Simulated assay, not measured.
Amino acid sequence: MSLINVTNLTYAYEGSYDNIFEHVNFQIDSDWKLGFTGRNGRGKTTFLNLLLGKYEYSGTISANVSFEYFPFPVENKENNTLDVINDIFPDYVHWQLMRELSLLKVSEDVLYRLRKIAFC
């Protein structure tokens, strides 16, 4: 278990008159399964970017866990799904991946599909 502590967090986009967050304090247990929901423009992605260290802010955010943004960027859009997984996480364990697909009731065929790009 690890805690994510947010103390006196204040943040506004450069040039903005209004703060996105103002003197926000909370604590999240990393064992919790939770999600942030809300309408567009309410600060969900901004908060994730603050966790990732992409923006400067006042206050403190402390955690003993790392954060990642999903979906991950795909470098080579010609690769099949398994190649994309290998690019993002080269140390993955194949049997664990297969177990997760099975638990999700997803066919392993998805691993060999090419990324489809829609043109509008």
Rank of each mutant, 00 (worst) to 15 (best):
N49Q: 10
L97D: 02
K116Q: 15
E68H: 11
E14T: 01
Y17G: 11
N64S: 07
S2V: 15
F36E: 10
N49K: 15
K116F: 07
S102Y: 03
G15W: 08
D18P: 11
F119I: 09
H94D: 09
Q96L: 10
T7C: 13
L50V: 00
G35K: 11
S102N: 08
D109W: 01
Q96D: 11
K77W: 03
L114E: 15
I28P: 04
R99H: 11
P73K: 10
V74T: 09
F119H: 02
I88L: 12
S58N: 06
P71D: 07
A118G: 10
L111Y: 02
L50A: 07
Y112H: 09
A63F: 06
W32Y: 08
S107G: 00
T37F: 11
D18S: 02
E108L: 11
L103D: 13
I4R: 07
L103P: 04
R99Q: 10
I20G: 00
D18E: 01
V106Y: 03
M1C: 13
Y69P: 02
L82P: 06
G41L: 11
E14D: 04
A63N: 12
Q96V: 14
T81Q: 05
F36N: 09
V106M: 11
D91T: 15
M98L: 13
T45Y: 12
G53E: 14
P73Q: 13
F26S: 00
G15L: 09
D31A: 13
P90R: 14
I20T: 03
I85S: 05
F70P: 06
N86A: 13
L104V: 00
G15V: 05
I20E: 01
L52N: 04
K54R: 15
D29W: 04
N80A: 06
V65P: 01
Y55K: 09
I28W: 12
L82I: 08
K116I: 03
Y17H: 01
R113P: 03
P90T: 09
E68N: 11
Y13Q: 00
R99K: 15
T37K: 12
S62N: 06
L111F: 01
R115Q: 09
P90Q: 04
L111A: 13
G35A: 06
N76H: 09
Y13R: 01
F26Y: 08
V65N: 08
E14H: 02
T46I: 04
Y57F: 02
D91A: 10
N40A: 07
L9H: 03
I28E: 10
W32Q: 03
I117Q: 10
